[in-house]
Write a protein that binds this DNA or RNA. Structure first.
Lengths: 189, 189
DNA sequence: GACCAAATATGATTTCAATCATATGTATAT
DNA sequence: ATATACATATGATTGAAATCATATTTGGTC
């Protein structure tokens, strides 16, 4: 779901684009044209260090934006590549900047959107820092991080192996901390 | 170092405040008055879940801002408490919002600041997800995350025990991937 | 220079998640 | 109804970080 604030932009500021697996979206040093929203699929954002190592910046998945910093920079800071078949919305930089300049409410909504994202990432860092798989899974479920009903995706999202995640879920149910009400569906007790 | 953009605010929009260890800075549901910058010390941001568990949102340390989302909300979303003696700058919400409304450049700079923070947190998530302590330490050093010269702080920052961190540093030096040029000082080869 | 607290270093042991291996269940397409 | 790909589940083993225990070094203060 594209964040509501972007609907305030002119219609031609939003452009759907499809990418095949392994296709390049943009490269580091390309001139920036906008930020992106992921409708479906997954995008890998990477950079190369001076000594040639590959630095993973982020993998952006469904319902996430990426390349926000591109709004404020002439060049993209990294390479973006589709990990799988991917559908994106390109949100035009010039349109965003123009809207920010002319509509203070839009500018404020954009800052608010970014501030919310900061909050989300901070919490994710805390969760990922939890050593115990059981406690990490419990925290993630509590935070609503199980979005669909695929446990394997939750596992990847919180940095656990899928096996450890299944086990933790089973333990938590056994310990009466969670209820499993359907396949891939749990609630906190 | 307070981000430059906040210097564009009127002087009375910035207020230094000191807190003793364990002192409350704000509580969840308090009316928001602004965001904060940490000059020194550490602040714990926590919330309580419906069933009484304590949820750690973030620990904010030196040179970080926190409570950014307060700019866009009537109430604080969590409790903030000083973990140790702490010196903060309170950045006045009304002044920030007024400046955003009247100065599009300021609004843009604030969004840019937040976008940079998003980038930093995303990268930190990736680093923290690296299983191998050696590779995690290497990535963190490469990203300039060793800010002072206290390895123990780096360890806490990247989610490793201090022992594992010292060991990894020693391994990386032995493997010729890092050079130690002083106590607590390393560079990538 | 002496003292002290904290950081760093290192050895040994424990813990538990990752990994490997296999089996079962399930949603989807035909 | 059947076939298939993928998710889920579970047992066994491995590996490496956490933890525990000590020792040494170092920076700051007096």
């Amino acid at each position: 779901m594209l964040p509501k604030l972007f609907h305030d932009l002119p219609a031609n500021a939003l452009k759907n684009i499809n990418f095949q697996k392994s296709e390049t979206i943009f490269r580091q040093y390309d001139e920036t044209c906008g930020l992106y929203f992921v409708i479906s699929g997954k995008v890998s954002l990477k950079r190369h260090s001076p000594n040639g190592d590959e630095i993973i910046i982020h993998n952006a998945g469904k319902n996430e934006t990426f390349a926000e910093a591109a709004l404020f920079s002439k060049e993209y800071h990294c390479d973006a590549t589709a990990i799988e078949t991917t559908q994106l919305v390109l949100i035009n930089k010039a349109a965003v900047l123009a809207q920010m300049a002319s509509n203070p409410i839009f500018a404020m909504n954009l800052s608010a959107q970014f501030a919310r994202q900061i909050q989300i990432y901070r919490r994710r860092l805390e969760i990922q820092a939890i050593q115990s798989a059981d406690e990490r899974v419990y925290a993630a479920i509590g935070d609503g991080m199980l979005q669909g009903n695929i446990i394997k995706e939750l596992a990847a999202h919180i940095g656990l192996s899928h096996e450890a995640t299944y086990r933790s879920l089973a333990n938590l149910v056994k310990r009466n901390k969670l209820t499993k009400f359907a396949r891939g569906k749990y609630i906190i007790k």
